[in-house]
Design a protein around this nucleic acid. Structure first.
Lengths: 129, 129
DNA sequence: CCTTGCGTTATAGTGCACTCTAAGCTGTAT
DNA sequence: ATACAGCTTAGAGTGCACTATAACGCAAGG
């Protein structure tokens, strides 16, 4: 149920540096400590980090995530948090469009390369006979 | 058929600064100049920039784009360029997966918010009667 | 006792992708 | 003549998100 920083790093894929950085930047609440002063991450911490990772990896800035995270335990902020997530969803949809465009452009270029290569090969074959 | 830096900026959405930067970094070949020494972008320049923008916006690094661009006029590099594009395509597919995960996580959270808000509203209604 | 391993902190450094500044040039308009 | 618009350059500066360093603490094992 509880995890050291090394375990948490392994579980989330975030480096230890990043875990400490996120805490300092208040993306996660102050993590509990053991008798040695070592960080002890709870299941809920892991879950929160996992959620943050999702929105981080799709481009929400540290600053926005910070704002979002700071509202976490205030029920009256739900509508703001909701709005932020909807806004991010819009960004994600934009990203998806860019991905589609990029995919098409890449495939067109590869097709061009292949046509060219095919031509060269045929040319060689002609020369052979 | 030919465009000033301002027009090119408007056409591509890249700032003038970025256009000069991309040229300095060799993402595009040296742009032609007019009698005043001003840049003159051709239709082909615009097309190349548009393609670069596609792969840039889906996260290919300036450095990779530079490598790719430098091979542009060497027929014998086609297979390398092809490989680079396929690799980028893989990255894009990974991004898409992250987007799907993030989308699901956001929707789940919004659903949670809505359930909570709904509960609060019902509570109020109970108190009213 | 001391080395090893695992953590702690504050603070500095890195890499990336721009973005801006300062000083200068050229041709047209007032 | 001079002001203005639009460009040029080299090089400095910015913001972001980490990433690393240095110096230290603690406790278990040889």
């Amino acid at each position: 149920m509880n995890y050291s920083i090394t375990e948490t790093s392994r579980l989330t894929g975030l480096s230890k540096y990043t875990l400490r950085y996120y805490e300092k930047e208040k993306l996660i609440p102050k993590v509990k400590r053991d008798s040695k002063g070592y960080r002890v991450y709870t299941k809920q911490d892991i879950e929160w980090l996992t959620f943050l990772l999702n929105i981080r990896q799709t481009g929400m800035s540290i600053n926005k995530i910070k704002q979002f995270s700071q509202m976490r335990f205030k029920a009256e902020t739900i509508s703001i948090r909701r709005k932020m997530l909807l806004e991010h969803k819009e960004n994600i949809i934009e990203q998806e469009k860019k991905i589609q465009k990029s995919m098409a452009a890449i495939e067109a270029k590869i097709a061009r390369y292949d046509r060219y290569t095919q031509l060269q090969t045929e040319q060689k074959n002609v020369n052979m006979y």
